[in-house]
Amino acid sequence: MLIPCRQIGLAALLAAGLLYGGTASARDLTVVSWGGTYQDAQKKVYFEPFTAATKIPLTDESWDGGIGVLRAKVEAGNAPWDVVQVESEELALGCEEGLFQKLDYTRIGGKAAYLPAAVSPCGVGAIVYDFVLGYDRDKLHEAPKGWADFFDTKRFPGKRALRQGPKTTLEIALIADGVAPAEVYKVLGTEAGIARAFRKLDTIKNDLVWWKAGAQPPQLLASGEVAMTSVYNGRIDAANRNDHKNFGVVWNGALYTIDSWVILKGSPNTDQAYKFLAFAGAAENQAKLPQYIAYGVPNRRANALIAPEYLAGLPTNPVNLRTATEISDSFWLENLDRLTERFNKWAAK
């Protein structure tokens, strides 16, 4: 999330785009994802086996997100990318603007094969990841049960960390205040609901620390600066696996979001793109991803094929999914500016 990285990434993308532009006519199927350890895992699970199985050559690139990047590529015509993994907000915006092809689900296994939340007209879910309550098992004498415990500083002394800004913070406050997860955005859509969320946050205002980058929450837990934090579930998993921490996750009241595969409008490799989506959407292939990285996979039959030790820590484990709420993009697309202003006004009070 640090800006310099993003800008460097963009500049690199632009440069790559310019270099690529000249040879864009007859090119291999190009799949674009988010880089890092995640894309390394995708290479092993999807990209390389796909080429091995279908003999269709595949080039993978990475990007840093941003609807403007996709807009520029599609509007310029002759887009250098075919399949792109987008975040839910880009999916909603790009679908409205007609940047993506409407998907023919009969070619990728049918809508019923995927979790309902992962099915959208322009994109099919690739991974599911959660905002969960994380804590250090070695430091808390009792395991918290949900966001209500997060706000209970008497029973669970110590500071708390949340992501700076209103997004996810207000949802968490309402769930802690007893709003049913399914009702959160209905309540948040009213003035009274917003006031209620801020009133709940008032109760622990002096104990709150705000994190900005996804890498911070595990550090805050490890240093003992906070007793509990909101955190991406994958970060907790990585800290436990790689740094031998004993962090715990509370799945109750988790907030989830889905990244999706889209096919860019004007892609010259649409047929191959559909073959790739069918391959990456198949349960037996998706089931291999969680052993590399703790993201949930949206094919409904995948869970049965995942080893129990991995399944327990996945957002798509039915037990974990039951109490989870999807972060609403339509709500935040409309309200993020205003609620960010209100959040900062509140924080400075």
């Binding site: 705000w210 500016d337 900062n344 924080a347």
Partner: peptide, 16 residues
Amino acid sequence: GGGDQMISYFIAFFTN
């Protein structure tokens, strides 16, 4: 903290 952000924070927020 939440109440210590300077104007550039908001410029970055609206830009990115």
